[in-house]
Design a protein around this nucleic acid. Structure first.
Lengths: 241, 241
DNA sequence: ACAAAAGTGTTAGGCCTACACCCATGA
DNA sequence: TCATGGGTGTAGGCCTAACACTTTTGT
């Protein structure tokens, strides 16, 4: 570890952190991953000790190639989750002069989408916990605001890029997909219209699992047609509703 | 001025800057404001001396309330332009480890829209110059990329929020407005369809200037209905084309 | 047997697109 | 007088929104 006071500059420098809002979907609700700030580690983490916060941490000036890499590294260290840098979408900078009581800290905020059902096993339950968006406790620093902003940004983004693939298990049903959209946009859709639209996009392929679907009570299973999905993601699309 | 080496930290800190891409419209073309980097001032500005760059500069850790304030302050200092903090839209962070040869510098990129015809007088011609987007020289640091990203972001944003008010003079004509949209989106529109659409939004009010419009050769003058314009801006809108 | 979940198709209305002609001015 | 710029309206197509009934399973 570096010696105290080793790094000097002609002008004051701020500290820079990357914080991440990780959204997951359990088939019913949208959730967010939070960590509990501990008092055990470096002195610099003692602010807001014991409170819930977004995962994130300081830019390693000498090693982190980009701030997205910081986000990735810190998420892994704090929650056990391994995501690639590309999965972090930057959505804003929070730079208020008083946002950290210790020193001037600028944070670059990111959000990421994960398949909750698949990564739940990887999240280190000692440190991290998934919260329903409606039951998020009050958070350290300005993380409440960061979380709110991330959610609005996700709401915006969902209009232009399909969003299911990142959040749903590989095999899913139309009602699940619809519920996901409804959870994010906080509205209800007509079942028929939703199905028509999704089918027209051509990103769904029906999964044949042998069972010859007796009733209509058990939903049809789909997976995403990754090729069309990615093309749509690249070109952008217009979800109107 | 602070003494050299006065500021020490336990861990290395990056420098943080705010850079601004200021777009203006002269009635024909979209332009961008650039500054020429000088060698005269502090040592820290000698990198890329003499080259063109985006206006911007270092966060004043002790005084700048937010990074948007940094953007505002630096723009004023470097070009003479006075904008309010709200006029700077943050659109991304550029954090590549090698983007500045001197030390680790993270920049928070912003863009702003101004009425070129009205502010041209305020821009300090010794330091700053307006360039047509198609004639931008090669820029210092990674500012080429920042400029490209700003332009794409503007293109995106224009689909969801009306954009004329910030760029056009108070009184303008429909052909001007159309040309502005065409300049930004780099496409051509049908005159009639464009007019129909804009009129349906209800953000244009005809300006009566006495002259009883003999021919149709002289275009009708409009101003924005600020109330409807702001409402539309708040609610968002969907420009389809 | 009843409530809840899921599948399915049609119609009306609104928005987008394409398209042509006239008038006045300036060269 | 001719080329240019600007104003204006309509018809067809597509997408969106609204809407009801049937089947089956679980209680």
């Amino acid at each position: 570890m570096a010696k105290k006071g080793q790094y000097t500059y002609e002008y004051p420098h701020p500290a820079v952190t990357a914080d991440s809002v990780v959204f997951g979907y359990d088939g019913k609700e949208l959730k967010v991953l939070l960590i509990k700030r501990g008092a055990e580690k470096e002195a610099s983490t003692t602010a807001y000790a014991g409170e819930w916060a977004l995962p994130g941490g300081f830019l390693d000036v000498e090693k982190d190639k980009t701030i997205a890499y910081t986000a990735k590294r810190e998420l892994k260290e704090e929650t056990g989750l391994r995501l690639s840098e590309k999965e972090f979408k930057e959505f804003g900078t929070f730079s208020d002069i008083k946002r950290d009581p210790r020193e001037r800290v600028i944070t670059i905020a990111h959000y990421a989408l994960v398949k909750l059902t698949e990564v739940q096993a990887d999240t280190d339950a000692d440190k991290a916990e998934w919260f329903s968006l409606k039951e998020v406790p009050s958070l350290a620093f300005d993380h409440d605001k960061i979380l709110r902003d991330a959610f609005s940004r996700l709401k915006q983004d969902i209009h232009f890029q399909p969003v299911g693939f990142e959040l749903l298990p590989e095999i899913f049903t139309l009602p699940q997909l619809q519920n996901l959209y409804e959870s994010i946009l906080e509205v209800k859709f007509d079942r028929r219209n939703f199905a028509n639209k999704m089918k027209h996009y051509g990103i769904l392929s029906e999964v044949e699992d042998g069972t010859p679907r007796h009733g209509t009570r058990t939903p049809i299973k789909y997976r995403f047609d990754k090729e069309n999905y990615d093309r749509l993601k690249g070109n952008g699309f217009r979800l109107e509703f």
